[in-house]
Design a protein around this nucleic acid. Structure first.
Length: 711
DNA sequence: ACCGGCCTGTTTTTT
DNA sequence: ACAGGCCGGT
């Protein structure tokens, strides 16, 4: 052992300074430590910090890593996400692609609104759900680096869709905005088209380290490959079993192909898990073995057996939540686990609500990662839209968001006409309005009431007033304050008295964030906005809180005590992923990620009924739960409950029922691809139905009998 | 042409 | 439960 306590293989990975190196690192095998130590080592041998670039997958991981390097060496090494890296590069160099350097960044909501406008301009009616599908198509195309001007027709990219894509891209450029995918797409484009620019960045960062390489998509892969092409010092770390982002184009094949892509690559495998006790890790290993598409590997724990995984079959989601809260209190007291070492993981963000309710009730401090982030809130986005409009007066999306704050009587129809005029005349929305106000008779078929005209005049006038502050580079926080004042934003917020206090607080927080940011950073409004858009979940809160997050957000983290909740078919694995084997296997990897976050205690729960879309639905135990071998599991109950179980249910079916409904019991047994469902009436004391079922039918059957038993 | 009220589908997962 | 879409009233 050495001063960083590295094992033999970790040490090998750290010591390999030059040339390509691939580190296949199982969950909890110390990969972050390897990257951190490698950076420290690079600095020790005299590489200057400016020559090192570390890319991670989330902002949280990035800041954690750079803090650790800073603590040991007091040096700042650029540690960032691919998207933020793209933004940084493009901010400097995008003019080589004939874009403007002060671009703003559109989030998903803005992008969708723009896409919708494109449908309108092209007079294509958007059928329900189509919009998102098209967005997804465009997103994938960009992630795959297709040449936008040369898209291949195929069954998904119809002629119409290609037209939409072209217009969407043209409009983005016109509005001086990039969507998330552009940050990667245009960066890769820049590197491919402008060799001297690529050369400059290659010289700037001769040492490249990439974490979570299994989750890179083609554009990210291309950026990495081009950046390292000259110096070939690329170190990638990852675990194919933890690839969970294929929905945004990630290809775990990238990590499997590394040795082909980079000749003479050294490969190091880390297979000792220092995180989880044996029971937890072994259960996870058994689970992941159910994936057919995987590279076999043996990950062993170097800790003791530890406790079994506790599994709860809860009657309702309420019971599940209560149970979790009780156990949190118990562990806190009995095992002296601090709250920030506890996490609740769920598949979809909406599940967080019920836990929040109970946590608030019990006065337990908590923080939610992901979900509706601060910057996606309406009040914040309103203000940011005003700010974007200061930078780019062509930005129609930001204009339409702000024009009726406060109400100015400009409705859908008027906005649509304005949109058409800007497109036809190729003029910014602000200039268009000015022109119109000067001489309305120039615009045939476009009559506005004098009230509307006055309102528009008022809007333009006020916007100019605010823009004056921007031109003088007055503090961002002062601009926001001025905006709130001039636009009477507070009384606008007061229109909804219930949310008013909360929204006002958020606005205040934004203002203080702005002034803090400006104190600590160089740059002005466009950099500030960029920062906000790319920071999904800022964890400025250092208090001791328990953490709630989606399973996707849990990757890379670890906790003493973990609750995985909602392990039910259709929720996890999610219903939308059940069409293809690949998607189910990805869900299984997600489950694997969740389990391997737990260091000492792991609770997994599923419910028999759950409130979803405002009504109660029946739920079936997740197949993943069934895949965990019994020997690692201990069944626990929420309370000492009545015995719903009838011995006659035992015949040929395993020992616990899966659903409960007043007067009914329902049991499942998996049977090949489907399952057998048995419905038993407790009031009549007889079996009502036995069906062969793919899981979906069960609900209707049970509902049928439930109704009967109610009458 | 705008506004407000009712109805409906809607939620994976993230930068 | 809730936001966004549609329709009917002003």
């Amino acid at each position: 052992m050495n001063k960083y306590n590295l094992n033999e293989f970790q040490q090998q990975a750290v010591d390999q300074i030059e040339g390509p190196i691939l580190v296949i690192a199982g969950a909890g095998s110390g990969k972050t430590r390897v990257i951190v130590c490698k950076i420290i080592k690079l600095l020790e041998i005299g590489i200057i910090p400016e020559n090192i670039l570390a890319v991670t997958f989330t902002n949280k991981a990035a800041s954690e890593m750079s803090n650790r390097v800073k603590e040991s060496t007091n040096e700042n090494v650029l540690t960032t996400t691919f998207h933020a890296l793209g933004a940084r590069i493009l901010r400097e160099s995008i003019h080589h692609l004939d874009y403007s350097n002060n671009f703003t960044i559109y989030d998903e909501e803005d992008s969708l609104k723009l896409l919708k406008d494109c449908y309108k301009i092209l007079n294509i009616k958007d059928e329900k759900g189509n919009l998102k599908k098209t967005k997804y198509l465009i997103s994938n195309a960009k992630n795959d680096l297709v040449d936008i001007n040369n898209i291949k027709f195929d069954y998904s990219f119809t002629k119409t869709k290609i037209d939409i894509f072209h217009l969407y891209q043209k409009k983005l450029k016109e509005y001086n905005a990039l969507d998330f995918d552009d940050l990667l797409y245009l960066t890769a484009n820049l590197f491919q088209k402008k060799e001297e620019i690529l050369n400059m960045y290659q010289d700037r960062w001769p040492f490249l380290l990439i974490d979570e390489y299994q989750d890179t998509n083609f554009s990210q892969y291309t950026i990495a490959k081009l950046l390292s092409k000259k110096n070939k010092n690329i170190c990638v770390v990852g675990d194919p079993d933890q690839s969970i982002y294929s929905f945004r184009g990630a290809r775990y094949q990238n990590i499997l192909n590394f040795e082909n892509d980079f000749s003479n690559a050294k490969v190091v495998k880390l297979t000792i898990n220092y995180r989880s006790t044996k029971n937890i890790l072994d259960a996870a290993n058994f689970l992941i073995k159910n994936n057919s598409n995987r590279l076999e590997k043996d990950l062993v724990s170097n800790l003791n057996d530890g406790e079994n995984i506790k599994v709860l079959n809860a009657k309702t989601d309420t019971e599940e939540a209560k149970f979790v809260i009780n156990k949190i209190l118990k562990h806190k007291k009995e095992n002296n686990i601090s709250l920030d070492n506890i996490a609740i993981f769920y598949r979809t963000n909406f599940q967080s609500r019920i836990f929040e309710d109970y946590l608030i009730n019990e006065n337990i401090p908590y923080v939610i990662y992901g979900g509706l982030s601060f910057y996606q809130r309406k009040e914040i986005k309103d203000i940011l839209a005003f700010l974007k409009l200061l930078i780019t007066k062509k930005d129609f999306i930001s204009f339409s968001r702000t024009i009726n704050i406060p109400k100015r009587g400009i409705g859908k129809q008027t906005l649509l006409k304005l949109l058409f005029f800007t497109e036809k005349e190729n003029i910014s929305i602000i200039n268009l309005i000015e022109k119109y106000l000067e001489n309305p008779s120039d615009f045939k078929d476009f009559k506005l009431s004098s009230r509307q005209k006055d309102n528009l005049k008022d809007y333009i006038h006020k916007l100019k007033e605010i823009k004056e502050l921007y031109n003088q580079k007055i503090d961002i926080s002062k601009i926001i304050l001025k905006m709130i004042d001039t636009m009477n934003y507070n009384s606008y917020l007061k229109e909804d008295p219930i949310s008013y206090e909360n929204r006002k607080e958020n606005v205040k927080e934004l203002i203080s964030k702005a002034s803090l940011w400006q104190k600590e950073n160089e740059g002005y409004l466009d950099e500030f906005l960029q920062n906000l858009n790319l920071m999904s979940n800022v964890d400025t809160k250092n208090e001791k809180c328990i953490k709630l997050m989606s399973l996707h957000n849990s990757k890379g983290l670890e906790f003493d005590l973990v609750f995985m909740v909602g392990l039910e078919e259709d929720l996890f694995p999610h219903i939308n992923s059940k069409n293809t084997l690949d998607a189910v296997e990805e869900e299984r990897r997600l489950c694997y990620v969740g389990i391997t976050r737990a260091k000492k205690y792991l609770y997994i729960s599923h419910c028999q009924t759950r409130y979803i879309f405002g009504s109660s639905k029946f739920c079936i135990k997740s197949r993943f739960l069934k895949e965990l071998p019994e020997k690692f599991i201990e069944k626990v109950s929420a309370t000492m409950q009545e015995n719903y179980f009838d011995p006659s249910m035992n015949e040929g079916i395993d020992n616990d029922f899966d659903m409960y409904y007043p007067g009914l019991m329902v049991k499942h047994k998996t049977f090949g691809e489907g399952m057998v469902t048995k419905v038993y009436s407790t009031s009549l004391g007889e079996t009502l139905d036995i069906v062969f079922d793919d899981g979906d039918i069960t609900r209707s059957i049970v509902t049928k009998y439930a109704k009967l038993s109610m009458v």
